[in-house]
């Protein structure tokens, strides 16, 4: 562990610091953009979501992964374990009993990770907003969400659109950004840049 940490501090930290400090230098910009492109293409072209189908939207997620609206062509493979995945597609209603489980699974995912809220129930509580005493009104009350896909249930084309937007979001990230703290990324509310 120490060896890895010291290796990291020798290579990664200076690179990022250099990227942040010399962002205006054309050579640095060129370098950063090439590295970004390679790294982000790698990240975007193999988003592996953890299977987190809760309710009806899970069926649409499964249908999207099936042969007609194939997800595998985007490099998306559903993983059973959060430890092996980098995206969490919350598909379905999150209830008060399920919320701690959801949070624990989110923390078990390694960085970098993204969250997609699929379906009205995950976006805002959906049809359960008014009278349901046990439904969490939107999964973003528990974990930070990157992409919201409304619909009840959303069509597979919507899910594909959301995933492609996630690709765009991933490709917009940069190694020159501030280091990632657990769950909070640049562009999200609640983000405070690291002190100067």
């Amino acid at each position: 562990m120490d060896l890895i940490k010291s290796l990291k501090s020798l290579t990664e930290e200076p690179l990022r610091r250099a990227a942040r400090e010399r962002k205006d230098s054309p050579l640095a910009v060129r370098f950063i953009s090439i590295v970004d492109k390679v790294v982000n293409t790698g990240k975007a072209c193999s988003v592996w979501p953890v299977q987190f189908g809760l309710a009806c939207c899970a069926i649409e997620m499964i249908a999207t992964a099936a042969a007609r609206y194939d997800l595998d062509r985007f490099g998306i493979i559903m993983r059973p374990s959060p430890r092996q995945s980098d995206c969490m597609i919350v598909a379905g209603t999150v209830t008060a009993k399920m919320a701690p489980v959801l949070e624990r699974l989110y923390h078990q995912m390694p960085e970098p990770k993204w969250v997609i809220a699929l379906g009205n129930c995950a976006v805002s509580g959906g049809r359960f907003y008014q009278d349901a005493y046990s439904v969490v009104k939107g999964v973003d009350r528990i974990i930070p969400v990157d992409i919201y896909i409304p619909g009840c249930p959303p069509r597979p084309e919507s899910l594909l659109d959301g995933l492609l937007k996630l690709h765009d979001k991933i490709r917009g990230e940069s190694i020159a950004d501030d280091p990632v703290r657990e769950g909070i990324r640049p562009g999200m509310s609640g983000y405070e840049p690291a002190g100067e």
Partner: peptide, 15 residues
């Protein structure tokens, strides 16, 4: 069970 309990019987009395 109960991880998907969406209080639908209560909603049934409110709609």
């Amino acid at each position: 069970i109960g991880y998907l309990h969406s209080s639908l019987e209560k909603i049934g009395e409110a709609k």
